[in-house]
Amino acid sequence: MGFDLASLRTAVARHGRVSRVVVAEIRGSSPREAGAAMLVWADGQSGTIGGGALEYEAAAAARRQTASAHLSTHALGPDLGQCCGGSVTLLTEVYTASELVLLEGRDVIARPVARVPAGDTDAPLAVHRLLNTARAQGQRPPPQLVQGWMVEPVYRPTRSLWIWGAGHVGRALVDVLSPLPDLAITWVDVAADRFPDHIPPQVTRLPAAAPERLVPHVDTEANHLILTYSHQLDLALCHAVLGHGFTFAGLIGSKTKWARFRSRLAALGHGPEQIARITCPIGRPDLGKHPHAIAIGVAADFMARQQRADRNTDLNKEHSA
């Protein structure tokens, strides 16, 4: 999680005055973690801080708020009647275009929870130490309250996902995956008219007459989901990614299709261990064949793989420490 400056910028451009409500601190059990945020404007909102009653009350308060920044603490059980036994501290800030200018170009956004004119105060020593230590270690600090200051890294997607194909399943996959954090999605098909009219702003649409020629320009740590309208194109993409490198590659299709592809990829010079790096079939066939059922299964499998990879990375860091 982090400060999603791009989404805030888009919301301010559309709605003018936007409140950002962020979970600044939690104690005990809570619906969401520190750093979870939502945007609220006069007649709508986006994002979530979790907890139906908490979110409802926070959105209503944000619309009434006149101060530029306000900190509030909510006991989830006694105050809101929720089953969670903890408390949540929320920071609600009002943004217009002029405030956004002050945030541009930052990697970490640190500001006092009660705003004062710029230059009237400096961050406490604890904040400077936190930021300096994070920079020295090549890391970004997690969202947190530090001596009356809110510190948040600017959100940047950490995983690159290329979805090859804008057919029914490709569209359903974009619907399911695009709201998730940490995914930078590039969506490819052979022509612009293959895509729907409305595409989520965080998704990059990329028409290409020969999609396989794009693969050499893709990050070798990217993830790929291959589900085009053409078996010939699917094969060309599999051949291209095997020759380029990737973190994960999944191909939609049956066991029969994959058996034929293995044979053809071997004829193209790929060894058995290399070919086995591609996952096919993908998803959960038991969920059914509706495009969104397929997309849910594929997305669930993809997310589970990412979580396992994260756990392995964390374990490796612990062992090397």
Rank of each mutant, 00 (worst) to 15 (best):
H231N: 07
H231C: 08
F261P: 05
G245W: 02
L237T: 07
G243Q: 12
I278L: 08
H239P: 03
E212W: 15
A267G: 05
A276V: 06
A209P: 00
G253C: 06
A259C: 07
Y229A: 11
L233I: 11
G269K: 14
R205D: 02
W258K: 06
L265R: 10
L251R: 13
Q202L: 11
T279A: 10
L233D: 08
P201W: 01
F248Y: 15
A236D: 12
T279Y: 00
L235R: 02
T220L: 04
I252Q: 09
L227W: 00
L214R: 04
T247S: 14
T220A: 12
Y229L: 09
G253R: 02
I199A: 10
P211L: 11
L268Y: 13
T247M: 02
L242S: 03
R205M: 14
L214I: 05
T220C: 08
A249S: 10
T220K: 11
L227D: 04
I226M: 09
T279G: 00
A249C: 11
H217M: 10
T247W: 00
A236C: 06
Q232P: 03
L206M: 15
H244F: 00
F248K: 03
I275G: 09
V241M: 03
L227A: 02
L206N: 05
Q274P: 01
P201Q: 13
A259W: 06
L227I: 04
F248S: 08
A208I: 03
R205Y: 00
Q274K: 12
A210Y: 07
A249I: 05
R262G: 13
L227C: 08
R205C: 08
N223W: 11
G253E: 06
L235A: 00
G250W: 01
L268F: 12
A208V: 01
D234E: 10
R205T: 10
P201D: 14
G245M: 06
A209C: 05
V218N: 12
L227S: 01
E221M: 06
L237A: 07
S263D: 14
L242G: 02
P211H: 13
A222P: 02
P201E: 15
F261T: 09
E212P: 11
T279F: 00
P216E: 01
C238F: 05
L242R: 08
K257A: 05
C238N: 06
I278A: 00
L268K: 09
F261E: 03
L227R: 03
L251H: 09
T279L: 08
W258C: 12
K257Y: 05
D234S: 07
